[in-house]
Design a protein around this nucleic acid. Sequence first.
DNA 1: AACACGGGGGG
DNA 2: CCCCCAGTGTT
Length: 380
Amino acid sequence: MSKTLIDLFSQKLITWHSRHGRSGLPWQGKRDPYAVWVSEIMLQQTQVATVLERYPRFMKRFPTVKKLAAAHIDEVLAEWAGLGYYSRARNLHNCAQQVVSEFGGRFPSDPDSLEKLKGIGRSTAGAIAAFAFHARAPILDANVKRILARLFAIEGALQNKLVNDGLWSLADKLLPKKPSDMPVYTQALMDFGATWCTSRKPACLSNEKKCPFEKDCQANLINQALSFPQKIMKAKSPEFDCNMLLIRSGNSILLQKRPSRAIWGGLWSLPESNWVAKSDKKRKLPTFKNIFEESLPNENVGPWLKACKDVTLGSRIKHVFTHRRLWMQIWEVTASRNLELKSEDLRWIPIRQLGRYGLPQPIKILLQGLNLVRDGDLKN
DNA sequence: AACACGGGGGG
DNA sequence: CCCCCAGTGTT
């Protein structure tokens, strides 16, 4: 009986990796589960080029899981700012505390235990177990799903449970037999999806690259690589308007800590009014007083309005999220004196100390564009 | 099963 | 400008 693709896949992939895989990245070749874990979380939803800048900085600031567990969440969020998906940072912090309190500061080595930790799903658990412990555990991120969907011409949407379960089962069958091959195999799978079996320009459609699986790949054999995996049409994201207050008093700016479940959860941002759907044509134009009342609902607005002068319409910023598009109208205000703040989520931040706070990327860019922030003020 | 959650790259 | 990309947690 001849060998099938399933039998040969892992060795062919490892051979491909020896010639074309990415190497020399700072998180590669490590067996320290902490270092592996941080890199895997950071690499979720974030490109290698970005992680290349931020991973060494993070590891220098939080060199061990114990240091991370002992840090204040605001320090972790400040270090994470600009990477997006801030629940990752909150889960990272939470998970570090779990590892310290439940496992004495040592990560468990089996995928099932890893998956019980905050922010670690099945795929990341597999990656950590494979890299740090040589466990024969599969990963199944979007790159791997794409590779398998093409190799085996798998029909149906990836969201479909049967399709997803089938992919996991396939990923398991394809694992190399030798546990010692798990790190290089897992790395090879990630690299192959990221650089050769890419979403839009796969190697099989390129003149420069020769795919080692071109004679095996069911999608390629029918010239349909781009048709796998099946894509689902998604609706256009709704649009919203809101107002934001840039209140200055002397050398300080009033910032508000965002609720942890919201967009930019846990970061410090400008006080903002309610979001209004742009399609809501009946809405009245808000007055400045309205904006204040919506932005600072716990404060006594009267004294604030009296203490404010030089109200000017600032820039209008568009920001796009996965499921929303937001237009932010900035109102620039000078407060004549520092007012007493009633809510704990409000704080006067000296401009020179802004770097200590995690700011949403568009707010950071806004403040950089204003001359009131000097180079270095936003660096932590 | 569907949705929420940011930011960056490429056309 | 628009489109594409992407794990985990929550509901």
